[in-house]
Design a protein around this nucleic acid. Sequence first.
DNA 1: ATTAGCACTCCTCTTAGTTGAGTGCTAACA
DNA 2: TGTTAGCACTCAACTAAGAGGAGTGCTAAT
Lengths: 342, 342
Amino acid sequence: MLTIRQLQILQAIVDDFIMFAQPVGSRQISKKQEITFSPATIRNEMADLEELGFLEKTHTSSGRVPSEKGYRFYVDHLLNPQGINSRDIQQIQSIFNDRLVEVEHIIRKSANILSELTSYTSILLGPDVQRHRVKRFSIVPLSSDTAVAIIVTNNGHVENRMFSLPPNFTASDLEKMVNVLNERLVGVSLEDIHKKLEAEVLTVLQQHVRSADDFIHALVSATMHNSESKIFYGGKTNMFNQPEFHDLNKVRMILDLMETTSQVQSLFHPNESGIHIRIGSENKQLEMENCSVITTTYSIGEDQQGAIAIIGPTRMDYKRVVALLDVMRMDLSQAFTKNRSD
Amino acid sequence: MLTIRQLQILQAIVDDFIMFAQPVGSRQISKKQEITFSPATIRNEMADLEELGFLEKTHTSSGRVPSEKGYRFYVDHLLNPQGINSRDIQQIQSIFNDRLVEVEHIIRKSANILSELTSYTSILLGPDVQRHRVKRFSIVPLSSDTAVAIIVTNNGHVENRMFSLPPNFTASDLEKMVNVLNERLVGVSLEDIHKKLEAEVLTVLQQHVRSADDFIHALVSATMHNSESKIFYGGKTNMFNQPEFHDLNKVRMILDLMETTSQVQSLFHPNESGIHIRIGSENKQLEMENCSVITTTYSIGEDQQGAIAIIGPTRMDYKRVVALLDVMRMDLSQAFTKNRSD
DNA sequence: ATTAGCACTCCTCTTAGTTGAGTGCTAACA
DNA sequence: TGTTAGCACTCAACTAAGAGGAGTGCTAAT
């Protein structure tokens, strides 16, 4: 167990390093307001903290730098919550000024503001479209052999896909089809559509329409690879500002990772509420070993969820980011729950 | 006017520099197959070419580097067209293997393959949605006060926007509305929709439906800021490979530029066919002073156009890129014209 | 238990010297 | 007269050595 003095010193070191990105020396710490001991005392404590694994040195005679374990401890025990600036709050609120209905627009704006306020990179996941429910299903024929299938969901999201019509498919066939589809599909969630189509709708349709088989199969394959939740980025190049990313290769790897949807998805903790922090190698991705990722979720309507991630160096301003995410998460949830309806 | 020997030497220097990114010395040139003169002779010619502004030195005793004027001359006069590798052609063809109908998917794939083949960054502009024509207009109410307007275009593109319904708007109002809108709007191009709405449709609707005014205005403002053509990127971080971009600031500026839709749009030459090359400061953007941009267009259906841009260092392999773009432009145009219909 | 003092470490910055690729010029040559 | 060999000169890039300084660990005094 750490003594109070050790806690105080560890906190001072981490805070200082987060601020200045320079190894912290005993003198530097001793000059702080809240510290009352001499550099020599601090040096002794530092040596102990290093032995315990909370601090590291870059070389024998350098100042100390927090280790990952140090950050972890800092985050778990020394992160007394902090209010944020009223100017920051105002900025966040400004997202909702336009009183726009479009979810996408609000999320995009949130991503930008978050990256501005933190000076890190932000990633926002939109609502999980898979869990939307069908509100209306329609098919618009484009030519004799192609048509567009359109699904409007309860949240106003529109999903559309082109597909091939079976030969000799008449307008009245199409009409019957759409009627049946609407009868059967309204209220079904997008992720369940193909099951429903194949199990139930197919048999019904076969009685009404020739070549229903081909039709349904075209439709199924069209709705199969449904789009995942959309991803919005803010401040993609913000990491260039951080001295730890003055290395092209690191930056490149992270930017590349962010282009890969699956990798980005795996940054998040779906279905876990609260704020999560992953420090350095706690991240599964090798590319992120110099980064910390702070994630949280926000709710959209009753049962939808979006997610937020902030990516920065391990020397991230955890206190500020956590505070900002907290506000942002609440505001988004509120805004989206107020305006939605089924 | 340059002598044949000067042309030969200029070409050799540019080729060499494009390949190795190192200032080219007289000895290096003299060793080439096609060069039969001694280093001393070449040095003399180099001095002349430098005086004429085609070459530059990085310092007094360095080899020569092409100037922008040098590249310009090279591109204009020394770029004898070159066939491309059958393996490359095969790769390009592979885009069309899936026999997919979706334009978007093909373009996305093209962007990736282009960036792979060139090892530069590619940007593809999808079809200009503004010029699509309305095929079907529909409105799906979500709740008592919001609805989604959906426009399907002749090319199967779907545009949708949420908007507020006027209070006390009945289902029958809505039905009438949609009927009138379809009567009047089918065949109108997206860019003309609001004109048409305000000029013609408004007066007609006012006779049928209460609060048509509010409705139309909501609709107009919803269709106003129509999405521009979608932008697809390939190999965004490819420039990290180029030695000239080992400078973080340059890379950052370019990446930032690519996040700004308006800036990206202005890289292109709309409505000009053929292949265009902009070298270094010929680009309007200051951020691009170290880059060359090669652009071209491809056709989608009868009157639609998409565009391609390749962004690389001024020391770009112009020959190869031009050849690749030529193939790509043809193939895309062909693929999109074959499968489309009105 | 705390702290002042001091020797020691090692990074960082500066300076000087060396190397080598490449030039420009001159004079010899075909 | 055009071409080329030879040579002195330039300058970036690398290496080595030395000075300066921030910071540590240890010891002994408080």
